[in-house]
């Protein structure tokens, strides 16, 4: 039988994973490719560059870095909360 802490840890991990992946897909495939033309036309530009184009060339990369930082921090908290941290 699985211990209750293990179970809640796994559920929390999975939830975090899915949320981060949803953001990942929105900033890259969404903003950079599928919604790009709409965003260029309807949303404010970054400097002199339309938003959709900027997301594809710069913005998505910045978001990816932020996602990984959030992941590392949240997972460390989860580990500590469930007693899996090693330091």
């Amino acid at each position: 039988m699985e211990k209750p802490t293990t179970r809640s840890y796994k559920v929390a991990c999975l939830k975090l994973t899915l949320i981060l992946l949803a953001i990942w897909a929105i900033v890259s495939f969404g903003c950079g490719i599928l919604l790009r033309n709409w965003m260029d036309a309807n949303l404010p530009s970054i400097g002199h560059v339309p938003l959709g184009f900027w997301m594809a060339q710069q913005g998505s990369i910045i978001c990816f870095v932020l996602l990984l930082i959030i992941y590392a921090i949240c997972m460390r908290r989860l580990d500590e909360k469930h007693g899996y941290s090693e330091e």
């Binding site: 994973t17 981060l20 992946l21 990942w24 890259s28 950079g32 594809a56 060339q57 998505s60 990369i61 990816f64 996602l67 990984l68 992941y71």
Partner: peptide, 13 residues
């Protein structure tokens, strides 16, 4: 640009 950096998110998570 997106492919080679975005892949790292998948890889890590």
């Amino acid at each position: 640009l997106m492919g080679w950096t975005g892949g790292f998110v998948l890889l890590t998570i």
